[in-house]
Computed example of a mutant assay.
Amino acid sequence: MLRSIKLIRAHAVSLLMLLGFAGQAQAALNVFACEPEWASLTQALGGDKVDVFSATTALQDVHHIEAKPSLVAKMRSAQLVVCTGSQLEVGWLPVVLRQSGNVAVQPGKPGYFEAASVVNMLEVPTRLSRAEGDVHPGGNPHIQTDPRNIARVADALAKRLAEVDVGNAAFYQQAHQTFSKRWQAAIDRWQTQAAPLKGTAIVVQHKGFPYLEDWLGLKEVTALEPKPGVEPSGSYLSEVLGVLKTQPAQMVVRAAYSSDRPSNWLAEHAGIPAVELPFTVGGTPAAKDLFSLFDDTIARLLAAQASAQKAKRSAP
């Protein structure tokens, strides 16, 4: 009788252990994404194999995020960190990483991934000085506005997911192949739709669009910020208005997280449309994922161009 009880207990313990291991095997990979675009991309590549947390939203300025205890807590349980890099998150991410004590996701470890490391960076400064404003040594970090960069990041991120989560490597490979086919087809469609935008002169509120400009062939006349990250004064806006008298622009562009006051002022005084672009996933109601992000971006630019052309035709 005693032996039977012991055997039952042993079987029960073994069953509990097997259930525990099965639960661990099925547990989703915890991913800490610094920005919504990388959260969306990781979800597209990882499906139900990943549990993705986005540390920021599209309506926040990622340069200026507080290293809150809630972010530290999320970092503690992360198995993979996916961020832009190029010092975009330098004001808060190092603090969160350090305070988390999570050795597996520190820079240099497989659990730490920087998107900017796999793309061709634009606007790399020739000299560094705080007097120049919010300048990034590695180049402009707003790489997500060019879908070709998203494709490059997807290639590298899929490999990293497979490296960190070996058991699901085949899943990530297949998901990447599916995503890549859809993404390339979308890029071809977007480029056809956006062809009329090539050569369009624009003013930007913040220098956050060089990759979008490079992709679509937009021509940046000037920026409303006198230096990156520095709010324009009334006198500086008047200077910009003077520039447009000799170098006309068709629209003024800003990201959804930025204040609309400077761009609206210029739009009113220069007689050109002000365009709010989502900038990342969630920036506008229509930009629900990476695909609709670029659908909405191009639709807004084309609508602004049509508005500018209509105004020009009706001008006396």
Rank of each mutant, 00 (worst) to 15 (best):
A115D: 05
F171I: 08
A175V: 07
L157T: 12
T126W: 07
D165R: 04
K159M: 14
T145S: 13
E123I: 06
T178W: 03
K159I: 10
E163A: 12
Y112T: 01
Q144R: 11
S129Q: 05
F171P: 03
H136T: 10
P125T: 03
V119E: 00
Y172H: 03
G133P: 12
T126Y: 06
Q173G: 07
A131T: 13
Y172C: 03
P141L: 01
I150G: 01
H142T: 05
L122K: 07
V166K: 02
I150E: 14
T126K: 15
A175L: 06
A175R: 11
V124Q: 11
D155W: 11
H136R: 09
G133N: 15
N168G: 00
A169P: 00
N140R: 11
K159F: 04
S180N: 10
L157D: 15
V135R: 13
R127L: 15
V166T: 08
Q173A: 13
A156G: 15
M121C: 08
T178K: 04
Q144K: 08
R130W: 09
S117D: 12
E114I: 00
A151L: 07
R160P: 07
Q177Y: 10
F113Y: 13
V164S: 09
P147N: 13
A170V: 14
G139P: 08
L157M: 13
A154L: 01
R182M: 01
F179M: 02
A175T: 02
V164G: 07
I150W: 12
